[in-house]
Nucleic acid binder design. Structure first.
Lengths: 141, 141
DNA sequence: GCTGGCGTTGACGCCGACGTCAGGGGCTAC
DNA sequence: GTAGCCCCTGACGTCGGCGTCAACGCCAGC
């Protein structure tokens, strides 16, 4: 199959697949026109990559799994390097969740204090136009 | 005081302060040489910004707090927009923590399954060089 | 006068995972 | 023949929060 079809099957874009190829994940054969062609094994590989991405793995972190699959294993996560990556990610998740939880408590406390302060003495000189909050992560930590 | 001193007092860099100024947070007076000069109020402002950054607020999200302080309030978090930003961040933190916890469970389960599979049939064709895990966040969530 | 340390502005670099554009080819259908 | 869709490569844009470099000015001390 060609790149567009594979991308659609995996719920991603041709551009993403070319990107993976540029990183050495997901190599492709070429047909007589120079078009990339893929098979079922490539689809499995790609699905592995995408699944791990959904878990927050960076592309480099998917490499052990990809190589494990390429090595002929039925699953990409049975190789030592894959297991190590899983464990590292778990530790990282624990750390991040811990930090975020601590931050959440602090912010909650601060919000409570500010609300109390406003209740006792509602002294805000004026209220500027509303602000929006986007995704972010704690820093320096 | 000048930019280097203020930066040191707040544990950051002159470059960062110029960046904040370029965003309209933290304005500066100028002395006869064109050097930026700051006072205690600016230090409080800067501390507010840095504290929020530690909580994972983006610079734009600190704006309501900064404007609240500038409006003469003793604290930057008593204005409606600040409270709203706090609440939005709390909701965001809850969402992120929830997602990460779900991901953690999934990864933990997968790791367990992979370990079990290796135990019953240790068939990894070879083990590629170890990989490192850096910070990341789940995608498409 | 020269060095060193602080300041100034402007501009590019970085990270990750692509999006998007430019400029071209190949093939099919009408 | 031409419109439309898919493909190709190469290269720059995005987002945030600065780091870092270039090229310069100002002042103190030796």
């Amino acid at each position: 199959m060609r790149i567009g079809e594979l991308a659609a099957l995996a719920g991603t874009s041709p551009r993403a697949l070319r990107h993976y190829e540029s990183l050495g994940l997901l190599t492709a054969r070429r047909d007589h026109r120079g078009y990339r062609t893929y098979d079922e094994a490539d689809l499995r590989l790609l699905r592995q990559i995408r699944t791990l991405q959904d878990f927050g793995f960076g592309l480099e972190e998917t490499r052990p799994f990809v190589e494990c699959l390429r090595a002929g294993n039925p699953s990409g996560d049975v190789c030592p390097a894959s297991l190590a990556t899983y464990r590292a990610k778990l530790a990282e998740l624990d750390a991040v969740i811990g930090e975020l939880s601590a931050v959440r408590e602090t912010v909650r406390r601060r919000l409570g204090q500010a609300e109390a302060a406003v209740a006792t003495e509602p002294g805000c000189a004026f209220s500027p136009p509303a602000a929006r909050a986007g995704p972010a992560e704690p820093r320096r930590g």
